[in-house]
């Protein structure tokens, strides 16, 4: 309950009740999904499920190859998104004047990209990476397509994080005769790290959840990939396939979905921990 004196009139109370109800609704939806997944999926999850290859189109067996494919696609996507996105965000937040035509144009492009349906990215990735650049249906082309999707989210999150770093740090650096690059590397970027990490999490979330764009780019072959130029089936594509095309596949679909959610929560937690205890401490506090 908020402090009594802050709730004075009936309208306040109504708004408070409504927002509290909304919070509960959100929690409830999440709990329902999780409950559903646990009820139907938990029994199927085991070490052999996580490591074995699928049998009988996925009705039986495990999801080993999909986990590996998903990891590799994610790796390619992040390896492209993070350095590129970081440079773009630094350019937009630190170097270009806010109203510079170029920066404005970049910002609008990113916002349009962020709202684009993923199927469009899939078609683009297929045409550009798979066909034009000759990557075929491969982990490369899936990962790079995901990078295109995650980039706008990551750049905007990072730009916001950089903008929220107090201007007084930069003025302090300037006044001490530090180069802007040094101030950026030693003071501004470390201060923005929690926000940047949030951007990474957003990017990972979008990448892990993606189905439509990957069907056209990394393909749906459920073999264990031997190289980044091999085709590979992502976990989300696997779930889609089991749920839509395989009769009797729903048990394994549930287990796969549960695995995916667990993976998301794990990565989330890791990023938070890394931000506050590992990297952050080392960079900032000492």
């Amino acid at each position: 309950m908020p402090h009594e004196s802050t709730i004075s009139c009936g309208r306040d109370r109504a708004l408070w009740a409504a927002s509290q109800a909304a919070v509960w609704a959100v929690v409830l939806v999440f709990a329902l999904i999780l409950f559903d997944l646990l009820r139907y999926g938990l029994a199927g999850v085991s070490w052999s499920f996580l490591t074995e290859a699928p049998r009988s189109a996925g009705r039986e067996g495990g999801i080993g190859p999909m986990l590996v494919s998903t990891g590799l696609i994610l790796f390619v996507a992040l390896a492209a998104t993070i350095p590129l996105g970081l440079c773009a965000a630094v350019a937009m937040a630190e170097w270009l004047p806010y109203r510079a035509r170029f920066a404005r144009f970049a910002r609008i492009s990113l916002d349009v990209l962020a709202g684009m349906p993923s199927i469009v990215f899939g078609l683009f990735g297929n045409a550009f990476f798979s066909i034009y650049l000759g990557m075929g249906l491969s982990i490369w082309s899936g990962g790079l397509t995901l990078a295109c999707m995650a980039l706008p989210l990551f750049v905007r999150a990072t730009e916001e994080a950089l903008r929220s770093v107090p201007e007084s740090y930069r003025a302090g650096g300037d006044a001490l005769g530090m180069t802007r690059t040094r101030t950026l590397l030693r003071i501004v970027l470390p201060s923005a790290l929690p926000g940047i990490m949030a951007g990474v999490i957003l990017a990972i979330g979008r990448a892990l959840a993606e189905t439509a764009a990957l069907i056209f780019t990394s393909g749906y072959v459920d073999r264990m990939p031997g190289a980044l130029s091999d085709s590979g089936r992502a976990l989300s594509v696997h779930i889609y396939d089991l749920a839509m095309n395989v009769t009797g596949g729903s048990a394994n679909a549930y287990s796969s979905a549960l695995t995916l959610i667990a993976l998301l929560i794990l990565i989330n937690g890791m990023a938070v921990w890394l931000t506050h205890h590992g990297l952050y401490r080392r960079l900032i506090k000492t």
Binding site: S168, Y169, G172, G173, R186, I187, P190, T286
Partner: peptide
């Protein structure tokens, strides 16, 4: 405003 860096 005193503006120490977020360092030790």
């Amino acid at each position: 405003q005193p503006n120490p860096f977020p360092l030790s």
